[in-house]
């Protein structure tokens, strides 16, 4: 709460410019991901969104998560998705059968908009005047240094961490078993 109460006169202009540029780029890219007719293009637009998310993490002073985001998401997951595209012999060029029928798209739009309206309303109601007071505060004060994260993971969240490790192992084995040709 201390971050909220501190009064500053700083205008946050650079941060705001950065945020809105990245945000608009992300939304456009995300829309392209779900509308493009080319599977490979979709994957590349996804890279843009993921990079934007990493940039937002930097803006939020969470550097370690941002780096992880780039490494894991852009470095591994997108490559994995592209492999999936190629292994399933998906059309590399334009194709019209990526989307469902019109009715399905209509229903999806309605549900997505209803969800957005719902969430927007709740967010606007709940966090209307909450400010993020970042200026003049070190990353450590915001609890985002790598050391603080690792302290947290290996003490408070040790059990979930182990559980996630087991999950990853199980997923690895599961993926091998599923994808094995026999």
């Amino acid at each position: 709460m201390s971050a909220l109460l501190a009064q500053t006169t700083y205008t946050y202009l650079p941060e705001q410019v950065g945020f809105w540029m990245i945000a608009i780029l992300m939304v456009v890219a995300a829309l392209r991901v779900v509308t493009t007719k080319n599977v490979v293009h979709a994957a590349l637009w996804l890279v843009v969104v993921l990079a934007g998310v990493a940039a937002q993490f930097i803006l939020l002073a969470s550097e370690f998560v941002a780096v992880t985001q780039v490494l894991v998401y852009i470095g591994a997951i997108v490559v994995l998705l592209l492999f999936g595209v190629m292994l399933t012999k998906a059309p590399l060029g334009r194709s019209d059968d990526l989307d469902g029928p019109k009715v399905q798209k209509g229903v999806a739009v309605v549900i997505a908009l209803a969800l957005l309206g719902m969430m927007g309303w709740v967010l606007a109601e709940s966090w209307r005047d909450t400010k993020l007071d970042l200026h003049g505060r070190t990353v450590g004060e915001l609890g985002q240094t790598t050391g603080q994260l690792s302290d947290s993971i290996f003490s408070t969240y040790l059990l979930p961490f182990e559980a996630v490790s087991i999950l990853l192992l199980a997923a690895l084995i599961g993926a091998i078993v599923l994808a094995r040709r026999d």
Binding site: Q16, V33, D97, A108, I111, M119, W127, L132
Partner: peptide
């Protein structure tokens, strides 16, 4: 021009809804 929490939350919400649209509408 204060940095608001809601900026980030709304960005998340919009991305979420776009994702939901994609899950529901895509065939591939």
């Amino acid at each position: 021009m204060d940095l608001m929490l809601n900026q980030f939350l709304f960005l998340g919400a919009i991305l979420f809804c776009i994702g939901v649209y994609g899950v529901l509408a895509r065939r591939n």
